[in-house]
Design a protein around this nucleic acid. Structure first.
Length: 897
RNA sequence: GGGCGGGUAGCUCAGUGGGAGAGCAUCGGCCUUACAAGCCGGGGGUCACAGGUUCAAAUCCUGUUCCGCCUACCA
């Protein structure tokens, strides 16, 4: 009898809004996310890729953190000491921009406050509106150990940053120097190479004439150079040509007169010049082009800086001082034209560098910056991946990693902004000595002067991120956390920060901890919109995870993301897909509701699992056998980071095997009058539900936790219950074979019914004709199952040869036939057509198979089992064909009569 | 310029040497007492194109083409 209490306890439709908020609170309050330190158990640890404090959760975060949470929940259930460290990144430039914009809205700028006051403002902002994203991660269900939440600028981490900086400096791996760096005139700071994005732009190539300083009779009077940035000519200090270029041989060593500025500049020979490009002569602007800077170093040329920090022309640009770089460009062109020195201009596409934060066109600029010498760090990091100490998943990234690590240039780590870790270097005002120290020095160690200026630059945000895996665990102290949880087990991140972050963590981890920071790096795809475009606010194609969570529920969103997370491919996310999985969550809910409805009131025990042998019904042995396989498959998939495979396996099993077949098969037993059969069915329905809920939990934490507490018996939380192990004793190939055949028979009868137009509710009589003893036993024993599922009232089972029923439609299977009486309402001609169509199809396949078997090469070279398989096919086809023919004859007979 | 990934059903994608698959969409039939957010059934594909290897190719190789991404100091 259905239990009314349960019926009331579980509403007919799942309402995630009711269920989700409750459980997260309870998990947190009970401290279930807090790391365990049991020395007996293996460990599993991860550090979160720290989102920006300014950030709001976007769909990429949702994917990233869902995958992390799936893993950590799986491992936690599986008995590991687990630690998932959460935190946020101070995101130097990004955060400073946010706060500056707010000030700007009030008509103020950071300079109105000064450095200290401004930084205070940022901290205030962080306290009031930063870290929103942490709350959003909680809504997503992330089971981070929140008691260990860190921030890249908190006290401990700042100390670690300083320690790392000082050590590297003392080892000579950090240096200061004058180099061409990428300068963002809007952010007014240097950028690292990878912080510059390249955008294909329609530009122009201008050809300008530089006359010879001393006119000579033998040679032409000028050299033409081509450039995409004519304004930089104001800072030219030479023109370079290829040493072998016959056109310019006579010019080398002579001086040209730089137009507009009237400065004498030499013509130099340098091998980097491509004679084929442009005119084969290149203007050299050492202060504003890396290539030119290198030439200048080789040729001993001077550098003239013509831009200030806002990309406004300086005094060095003479009459052009005070102009913006683009105004200057127009002016220079106009003036050259006037003097007849602009030979021509042509359209030219080029890739311009833009700031990855604010998209302003960057200006290469010569300036004094701090650098990390990367080569000595990159070597070990390269080797660690080659030696599989850290395994990249998917492995295809190894090549990219490799290439980047071998061509990497020194890392510019100083930024001319205020928000960040200030570089711990001081300069003595008296003697100029540079002091790098952990603590602020009181006096110059060289001359004793106390007038010291601290370096005003701060460190690149990625500098502190690079040490995140160990700084968050307490380094430089020797903590139990470091002892137990380093190296971390896996890092899950998006591939677009492989270089920004992962590679640098590898270098720093190896250098300071002497070990890799993580054993596995799983690089997941980027989520794109349905057209494959990157999601961005300006394009208006973003899917906001918070909105869809609101709409479909967290579990549905999480499951969707997991099901999409196939390795090595971008994810094109369409919202409709989430709706499908929302239905699935409801399906689970209702299956559970059904199981509970059929349990005895209250006391139904999960006591001792009976041996599968003791079940009389193959359907029960089958579903347990399948559960055993599925459990193994899910574990394997998760161990290999195949989240999509795990999700799909579970989906298929739960819906299309457990719900569609097993629960339907169990209905007669559950509602029947045989107590033993009823108990067995109850036990199996409940056991499979119990196991699958636990298998589902990492993907769908909320609905599983809720249902778990409705199951009978004393239950702790599902999130700390054991993750199911395969039960090999349940494996039962015979039962699987039987049920497979039941499915075949039932499907064919259903198919025939549908095509014959027999009303689904109509209970019909069918005649089943076995062609073997085995088939007879099968039909005899599975009569009830077939009747239940195919809507059959009476199943007549004659012995072979006893009967050849007339006036019937036939379902022809391998060693049995099922006849459905036509009873006048079926078009025999249509039935004949159907049979003819099937006959044709079979005939084709038969011919194909026969041809194969006539091919001696095939017989000789193909493996035995493949050949045998083909032979079996022939048999099968021939029997079926024969039966189809005979049935056609019968029908034709009826037509004639 | 270099590198990587992809082109399979209307859409989104699995499948990586032996009889073309899933979800969604679509069409037809069902309110069968867990679920209409459901159930049952059907239709739909020269696996981008062209060569090659093989007894056998969606799968391996070569070329072509289209799409996407990353990378780059031809001014």
């Amino acid at each position: 009898m259905p239990d009314e209490a349960f019926n009331k306890a579980l509403p007919k439709a799942y309402d995630f809004r009711e269920v989700e908020p409750h459980w997260y609170k309870e998990w947190t309050e009970k401290g279930l996310f807090v790391a365990t330190f049991d020395p007996e158990r293996p460990y599993f640890s991860m550090v979160i890729p720290p989102p920006n404090v300014t950030g709001v959760l976007h769909i990429g975060h949702a994917l990233n953190n869902t995958l992390q949470d799936i893993l950590v929940r799986y491992k936690r259930m599986d008995g590991y000491n687990t630690l998932w460290v959460p935190g946020t990144d101070h995101a130097g430039i990004a955060t400073q921009i946010v706060v500056e914009r707010r000030l700007d809205a009030e008509g103020q700028s950071r300079h109105d406050f000064g450095r200290e006051k401004f930084i205070e403002k940022v901290w205030e902002w962080k306290a009031s509106s930063g870290g929103k994203i942490i709350e959003q991660l909680k809504a997503l269900g992330c089971s981070c150990d929140w008691s260990r939440e860190r921030f890249t600028m908190d006290k401990g981490l700042s100390r670690a940053v300083r320690e790392v900086f000082v050590c590297l400096y003392e080892e000579g791996l950090i240096y200061r120097g004058n180099y061409i760096i990428n300068w963002c005139p809007r952010c007014r700071t240097a950028l690292a190479d990878i912080e510059v994005e390249h955008k294909q732009t329609e530009g122009r190539l201008w050809y300008m004439r530089y006359p010879l300083a001393e006119k000579s009779k033998e040679i032409t009077k000028f050299i033409t150079v081509a450039t995409t940035r004519p304004e930089t000519m104001l800072g030219d200090t030479a023109v370079a040509v290829h040493p072998e270029d016959p056109r310019y041989k006579d010019f080398v060593g002579k001086d040209l007169m730089l137009p507009l500025i009237n400065r004498r500049i030499p013509v130099v020979a340098d091998a980097v010049v491509e004679p084929e490009f442009g005119t084969g002569a290149v203007k050299v602007t050492p202060a504003h082009d890396l290539n030119d800077f290198e030439i200048a170093k080789r040729q001993g040329l001077q550098s003239i800086n013509i831009f200030d920090e806002n990309a406004i022309l300086t005094e060095a640009a003479g009459q052009y001082a005070g102009l913006d770089r683009y105004e200057a460009r127009d002016q220079v062109i106009a003036d050259l034209k006037k003097q007849g020195l602009l030979e021509k201009e042509e359209a030219y596409d080029l890739a311009v560098g833009i700031c990855y934060r604010c998209k302003t066109v960057v200006e290469p600029r010569l300036s004094k910056q701090w650098f990390v010498k990367v080569a000595p760090l990159a070597g070990p990091a390269l080797k660690a991946v080659k030696d599989k100490q850290t395994i990249l998943v998917p492995a295809s990234w190894e090549r990219t990693y490799d290439e980047w690590m071998t061509t990497i240039r020194d890392w510019c780590i100083s930024r001319q902004i205020w928000w960040g870790h200030r570089i711990p270097a001081w300069t003595c005002a008296a003697c100029g000595e540079v002091i790098v120290a952990r603590e602020e020095p009181e006096a110059c160690p060289k001359c004793g002067n106390t007038d010291l200026d601290q370096e005003s630059d701060v460190l690149d945000t990625w500098f502190s991120s690079a040490i995140w895996p160990f700084s968050t665990l307490g380094w430089p102290d020797k903590t139990p956390e470091l002892e137990i949880f380093y190296p971390t087990s896996v890092l899950i991140t998006s591939f677009d920060i492989l270089f920004f972050w992962v590679a640098r963590m590898m270098m720093m981890g190896l250098h300071f901890m002497g070990d890799v920071p993580f054993k596995h790096v799983y690089l997941h795809a980027l989520i794109r919109d349905i057209e494959g475009k990157k999601m961005s606010k300006s394009k208006g194609n973003v899917i906001d995870p918070l909105t869809i969570i609101e709409k479909y529920g967290t579990d549905a969103v999480r499951f969707t993301l997991a099901a999409f997370a196939a390795q090595g491919r971008d994810i094109k996310l369409a919202e409709e897909r989430i709706d499908g999985y929302r239905h699935f969550v409801n399906k689970i809910w209702n299956a559970a509701r059904f199981v509970l409805l059929n349990l005895k009131t209250g006391e139904e025990a999960m006591a001792e699992p009976p041996e599968p042998d003791s079940f009389s019904d193959p359907s029960e042995r089958w579903i347990l056998s399948r559960l055993n396989q599925v459990t193994g498959n899910v574990r394997k998939a998760l161990d290999e980071f195949d989240f999509d495979v795990a999700a799909k396996e579970l989906y298929q099993f739960f819906w299309h095997e457990y719900c569609d077949w097993y629960l339907e098969l169990a209905k007669p037993a559950l509602t029947g009058a045989e107590p033993d059969r009823q108990d067995a069915a109850r036990w199996v329905t409940l056991t499979v539900l119990d196991h699958t809920l636990r298998l589902f939990h990492p993907f769908m934490p909320f609905v599983t936790e809720e249902l778990w507490h409705h199951l009978p018996g004393q239950r702790d939380h599902i999130m700390v219950s054991p993750f199911p192990e395969p039960v090999n004793a349940w494996s039962d190939a015979r039962a699987e074979g039987i049920i497979k055949q039941v499915m075949e028979v039932v499907s064919s009868i259903r198919n025939a019914r549908s095509e014959l137009g027999i009303h689904p509710g109509a209970k019909i009589t069918v005649i089943a004709l076995p062609h073997s003893e085995k088939a007879y036993h099968f039909l005899d024993s599975q009569e009830n199952a077939i009747k239940t599922l195919a809507g059959v009232e009476t199943l007549d089972l004659p012995r072979e040869g006893e009967l050849r029923p007339e006036d019937t439609a036939a379902v022809i299977l391998e060693d049995l036939e099922v006849f459905i009486p036509l009873e006048g309402f079926v078009d025999i001609k249509e039935e004949l057509q159907k049979l003819t169509k099937e006959e044709k199809k079979l005939g084709k396949e038969l011919a194909k198979t026969e041809a194969k078997l006539k091919n001696e090469n095939f017989l000789f070279k193909a493996p035995q089992e493949i050949v045998q398989k083909e032979r079996d096919k022939i048999n099968k086809f021939q029997i079926k064909l024969k039966k189809i023919c005979s049935h056609k004859e019968t029908l034709e007979g009826i037509l004639r009569s």
